[in-house]
């Protein structure tokens, strides 16, 4: 295993980068002008967070790479993001459900990271937390509005939840990288955040009149890098196109 701190920072950065890119795919084609701008803002927040995490990862690695090199020069098997965030946008409801499930975890995780023993990590978490608190406010209200909306919007949100719920479990898996972070008081145990997440999820889904799928099966392999879904590779061909076609291109 490579340096667990580097792995951890790549996980944080890749979550933000991959979701940020996914959300940016809505730019210009969202269902309403207001949502288009809001999604673009969210994407920019996440890409900004990714830059902070990956710059720190590169610094920790000390191999002469920077955030851009990590973002655009790694291939799919080196990415460490959760499977949830690489899932395709689907319709607007599916995008907002994915955002809500991630935001709810992200906010809790960042809040815990503000107490990190590594002050650089605590500082990034504190800056990101303000942005993510707003993301969660918007995504939760959208899930409630559409879940408890028309017959069609309700059906679409339930479909999105049924499709994405099997990706929730991976956010709370604890592996050897997490264990090293817990021991060093750098990051919290993901398992410790599950109860709070579950009760918040139940609250929002009740208000949205949506039914939480039963069963605790969960897809895994994103944050460990063992097995990404087929969607990430396709996404990277778009995201990394310029660096692949014209390495080291400058303006």
């Amino acid at each position: 295993m490579s340096d667990p701190l580097f792995e951890f920072l790549c996980r944080m950065g890749d979550n933000a980068l991959v979701l940020g890119h996914r959300v940016s795919e809505w730019c210009g084609v969202a269902p309403a002008l207001e949502e288009d701008i809001a999604l673009a803002n969210t994407a920019l927040d996440l890409v900004g967070q990714a830059t902070l995490w990956l710059d720190l990862a590169a610094e920790v690695e000390g191999a002469g790479r920077d955030a851009d090199a990590l973002a655009f020069r790694r291939d799919v098997w080196d990415f460490r993001n959760l499977l949830l965030v690489e899932q395709p946008n689907g319709d607007f409801g599916q995008t907002m459900m994915r955002q809500f499930l991630f935001d709810a975890w992200h906010r809790a995780y960042l809040a815990a990271l503000t107490d990190s023993s590594d002050t650089r990590i605590a500082a990034i978490a504190e800056k990101s937390l303000k942005e993510v608190t707003y993301h969660l406010d918007r995504s939760a209200e959208t899930v409630i509005g559409l879940g408890d909306g028309t017959e069609e919007s309700h059906r679409r949100m339930q479909t999105a939840l049924d499709r994405l719920f099997p990706f929730v479990g991976e956010m709370f898996v604890t592996d050897e990288v997490d264990a090293a972070m817990i021991t060093a008081c750098i990051a919290p145990d993901p398992r410790s955040l599950r109860a709070g997440f579950d009760s918040y999820l139940a609250e929002v889904l009740a208000e949205a009149k949506l039914i939480q799928p039963s069963g605790d099966f969960s897809h895994k392999g994103g944050k460990s890098g063992a097995r990404h879904s087929e969607h990430l590779g396709h996404m990277l061909t778009q995201m990394q196109w310029l660096q692949r076609a014209y390495p080291d291109a400058t303006w």
Partner: peptide, 20 residues
């Protein structure tokens, strides 16, 4: 001006459209 389903959504949209 902007469009929104209710007042809370209008404030969120205003935040995103007019205070970037």
């Amino acid at each position: 001006s902007l469009h929104a389903a209710d007042a809370e959504a209008a404030i969120r949209n205003a935040r995103d459209v007019y205070t970037r």
